[in-house]
Write a protein that binds this DNA or RNA. Structure first.
Lengths: 339, 339
DNA sequence: ACAGTCGATGTAATCGATTCCACGAGGATC
DNA sequence: GATCCTCGTGGAATCGATTACATCGACTGT
């Protein structure tokens, strides 16, 4: 592969001049510029990004560590992140943690070794030593969706509190009184927050959230299935299950189906995170939708701000309830005004 | 960030010795090794992968350019690719082409500039000049799922012919005679092949595939919706629609639903690529399942073989039909023996 | 006419690693 | 006791870019 020296030789100039042309530095003669450009063309030369990064100490690359690529919420997030990053002149390297802290650490380390300019993380746990060091250390960082408390890093996320209240209002209106939740890992902020928001919303109606109605999941489908089976085995099973993400909702559907039961007649179902398939499931699933694309874009903007020396804002956007038929028929149209 | 020089100073040895310890070169004294390791520990030193790559001309990185991250088939592929690559000591950088040739070229160029060790591509088109150059040029390359004919690059893919025959047998057995297909772009191999396989299979039953029953899609949901609407507007609409991927099947569902029609009574539906949600859609969707994980792993093995100087085999694995209820009730269990 | 300025260019240092080569000490061989 | 290896080590070149600094010619202003 041709290097800058080859181009310089071909054009009959020094490597400095070639570099100047490539980075369009002002003081290059038109003459030299055309000769260099011609040489670049004939040799099919492309600058070596590795060498360039070593010298400039910039990779123009963002690292994105997401919790699970198989979760449509995170792929949508990843897509919007890449899109916005590209628009701002950055590439993105994605690391998939599969909800495993060890894998998450592996990717963070790998990205740091590659000297990415900044890191976008949706942490799967409360923060390993490595993650905390990275956050405190030099690398610009932004949390997206989930975050780690007590660390001075901007957070871009969505607030589901109001939407959860709307959901509970909807469920209560349909006559449901025994409401259960499939929670995410307590080590994650979204794992805890969604339970708390649910409990608070229930409280407003004088309802309790007994421990038996809090199933411990891990944001993966299999745990949703397992927890739902547990609920169904209870002497007094819940009337509604609220899954804290879409994959656990899928697992819940598997469990209900395996028993030959029906949603919503035997068990109503709602989920956090809306995905396109929820429109076509049997029945269509009531869900809380996050402004995923906007979240991804805002996160990139915040990170690039930090990288380029500007402050870098935390952002919180509201989620909203999308009512479908999985919690009961003839739903009262409870929608929040925010779009 | 600490460099190898800092470590050398801290340990009281030369950088050469530090490098030897880090790459466990045999001729280093136990004494020096422990001193270096201690210095590494106290400084929290991590080798700069950029510098290392520049010197060794190896990045231990694979590029993966996929057609669409929002397509669950490709995310599953990406996941298995990353998994196998990690097991073999490589990282993966994913580029999402969104089914757009220009974006695909952007990512290929970007990956080449980063001097990745090898490239895994599922091309969105017949091959841009850049792609062809890359294939012929030095970079080891392997095609996965889709490929470009006439280029000497190993191909790892799945053969759906037998499964499509099974599908048509199933449909014919249910009494369907007017069968339509939502095709992928003619510029992609999978776009063409699936139509051809379908046509051939129909031929075996003396059925035609008229042009009006071939809808041109682009593997995205919106095109599936549009094409299906066209089918429904025909004076003699088809009885079955076979979508060449899962996203176009989603679009077809949208279209059917928008008209207040029902699957399979008003229109039967089948899809290429099986996904977990197909079990829970209304009705569950009959699909052709690819051994996606195995495909990804085989592709990585082939690519790493090439990178490390071994031949690099093409691999073709069979797909299989999974019958559900979207083509009609009481299905004859047509299953191929292969798992 | 001469000093000063400016624009274009080249030389060389530099980024952080790897690795060839030379060198010195110590042990084995005769 | 001289020679020859072997082993551990350090110095320095190298990878492919960027960029500070020096140089040189031409032009300008007085």
């Amino acid at each position: 592969m041709a290097s800058i020296k080859d181009v310089a030789a071909e054009a009959g100039v020094s490597v400095a001049t070639v570099s100047r042309v490539l980075n369009d530095h002002p003081s290059v003669s038109a003459e030299a510029r055309t000769r260099v450009l011609a040489a670049v063309e004939t040799l099919g030369y492309r600058p070596n990004a590795v060498a360039r990064s070593l010298r400039t100490d910039q990779t123009h690359t963002l690292g994105l560590v997401i919790s699970d690529v198989l979760n449509p919420y995170f792929t949508e997030l990843a897509r919007s992140v890449e899109e916005e990053a590209r628009a701002l002149g950055y590439s993105v390297i994605i690391g998939n943690a599969d909800e495993r802290p060890d894998l998450q650490d592996h990717h963070v380390r790998n990205l740091l070794d590659r000297r990415i300019d900044g890191l976008l993380v949706s942490p799967t746990d409360g923060g390993s030593p490595l993650m905390l060091d990275a956050a405190r250390g030099g690398t610009p960082m932004v949390f997206v969706d989930r975050w780690i408390p007590g660390v001075d890093v901007p957070v871009v996320r969505s607030d589901g509190r109001a939407a959860v209240r709307d959901l509970v209002a909807h469920l209560h209106g349909l006559g449901h009184r025994r409401l259960a939740i499939i929670a995410g890992p307590a080590a994650t902020t979204t794992g805890r927050e969604r339970v708390e928001a649910f409990r608070e919303a229930l409280g407003a109606y004088g309802l309790e959230l007994p421990d038996a109605y809090i199933g411990q999941g891990d944001f993966q489908a299999e745990s949703g299935r397992r927890v739902t089976e547990g609920f169904l085995d209870l002497p007094e099973p819940p009337e509604v299950v609220f899954a804290a993400d879409n994959l656990m909702a899928l697992g819940a559907l598997d469990a209900v189906r395996a028993r030959g039961l029906r949603v919503p007649d035997d068990l109503a179902l709602a989920a956090f995170d809306d995905i396109r398939w929820f429109v076509h499931t049997d029945p269509p699933i009531t869900a809380i939708a996050q402004p995923t694309g906007e979240l991804g874009r805002a996160a990139v903007r915040a990170l690039v701000d930090r990288i380029e020396g500007r402050p870098g804002q935390s952002v919180t956007l509201p989620a909203r309830l999308v009512v479908r038929r999985s919690c009961g028929e003839n739903p009262t149209p409870v929608q929040r005004s925010t779009t």
